[in-house]
């Protein structure tokens, strides 16, 4: 489905269906005729038919609407912005974050706090990383700006807890090392687009 129909703000030119509303009857005779017509047209039975059809749909054709929520969940869009996750590199298992600080910088509610230092190999190491979820507005900028796809939005939308600290430490957001094989690549906000390969061009060096 394209986006065209959503981008069309030209209200007057869309295809509206005009309901076939008849004039209300004025004379007593016309009123009587309307009542008689409605009585014998069997419209009420159409209503009964619809409900029984829906019942059969629900019971025998597997069209029950109910989702037993805590037991089963509806799939959410990959672009849904819930509690953040920090991803790991698949090959080495090391966290992806390179400590560039872009997310901390861009965060419009100033809720990312991080500290970095050089480790023994003179590589940047993240020593502190927390997100204050009391202030985060889940705007997704951090995920979009991250050059390493390290910080992403996960699908975890059930965020009721006793303390918001339960979510907000680096270790809590980081993919557990034993679940590395289950780590899902993020295709939401700021991720590489599906046709990224086609968009790659050679760097024009021959000026």
């Amino acid at each position: 489905m394209g986006l065209e129909q959503f981008k069309n703000r030209n209200v007057g030119t869309q295809e509206y269906k005009v309901l076939d509303l008849q004039e209300s009857p004025k004379t007593p005779m016309a009123k009587f005729a309307q009542v008689a017509k409605r009585t014998f047209k069997g419209e009420l039975f159409v209503g009964l038919g619809v409900t029984v059809r829906e019942m059969i749909n629900a019971l025998f054709r597997g069209q029950m609407h109910t989702v037993k929520y805590p037991l089963e969940k509806l799939p959410i869009s990959p672009r849904y912005r819930a509690i953040h996750e920090m991803l790991r590199l698949l090959e080495s298992g090391h966290y992806r974050c390179i400590g560039c600080g872009l997310c901390e910088k861009i965060c419009i509610s100033n809720c990312i706090t991080m500290e970095t230092r050089y480790d023994e190999n003179q590589r940047k190491e993240v020593s502190e990383y927390t997100i204050n979820f009391g202030r985060c507005i889940f705007c997704g900028y951090c995920a979009e700006v991250c050059p390493e796809l390290a910080i992403v939005h996960g699908p975890r939308y059930e965020t009721a807890s006793e303390q918001r600290a339960s979510f907000s430490l680096f270790e809590d957001m980081l993919t557990p090392i034993d679940k590395l094989s289950l780590q899902q690549e993020y295709d939401g906000f700021g991720a590489v687009s599906p046709n990224a390969d086609e968009n790659i061009k050679k760097t024009p060096l021959a000026y």
């Binding site: 409900t51 029984v52 829906e54 019942m55 749909n57 629900a58 019971l59 069209q63 029950m64 609407h65 109910t66 037993k68």
Partner: peptide, 13 residues
């Protein structure tokens, strides 16, 4: 139960 089924819900379960 019957009302629920007619509205494609589950009713008490």
């Amino acid at each position: 139960k019957v009302l629920a089924f007619m509205q494609r819900r589950l009713g008490p379960t």
